[in-house]
Amino acid sequence: MHLSPDDIIFWQLGGFKVNATIAYTWGLMLVLALGSHLVTRRLSKGLERSRWQNLLEIVVTGIVSQIGEVGLAKPRQYLGFLGTLFLFVGTASLFTIVPGYEPPTGSLSTTTALAICVFIAVPMFGIGECGLGEYLKEYVKPTAIMLPFNIVSELSRTLALAARLFGNMMSGTMILAILLTITPFIFPIALSALGLLTGMVQAYIFSILAAVYIAAATRSRKPPREPQAET
């Protein structure tokens, strides 16, 4: 049993290797990009539209409205980053119903990579929105003594993001694997359904938390609002 899909290596050449994490990620990217392209190449701008277009419109407008509800003034500006986070994590969880599939998000490397993306994107959006000085001032508020605590907070929440997603996704896969060895019937199906739910919830949590961090970073000039509680 592999604890992480990183351990399943399909091809390796020196330090360059193609493991299951990367391979399944490419698969997901292919499905997402190709599916989107197939639907959006014949988009209808009128009142009549296809069911697939309807589905994608619901997904996209749902993500935009969720971003807006977090408090970001221009949701479409962050759609590329936050929407991709949600779709990638959600699709990775959704495909767990395919036998033999290992979710890339069950690898700490993937979740770390996503957390690093968030860790980099938050200050980028903050600086882009408020300017470098204004953004850095946030670290010494209310007093300069808070600077180390704020830095630790940034790092720890990034780590928490990575560990939370990894733990949830890995545990789902692990429990399923263990149950298959103990009770091969019925229970794995129930656990698989539970895993789907957990995976979608985690995708939501991950992207919403990223949105909250970005909102906190880009709101330095605006009246502060209560950030949503972490789960």
């Binding site: 997402l32 990009a33 989107s36 392209h37 959006t40 988009l43 209808s44 701008k45 539209r49 277009q53 994608l56 419109e57 996209v60 935009v64 479409r76 759609l79 590329g80 929407g83 991709t84 779709l87």
Partner: peptide, 12 residues
């Protein structure tokens, strides 16, 4: 996704 999903859908 930006190229094939968000932009076309939002434009539509």
């Amino acid at each position: 996704l930006k190229r094939f999903l968000y932009h076309p859908i939002l434009d539509a």
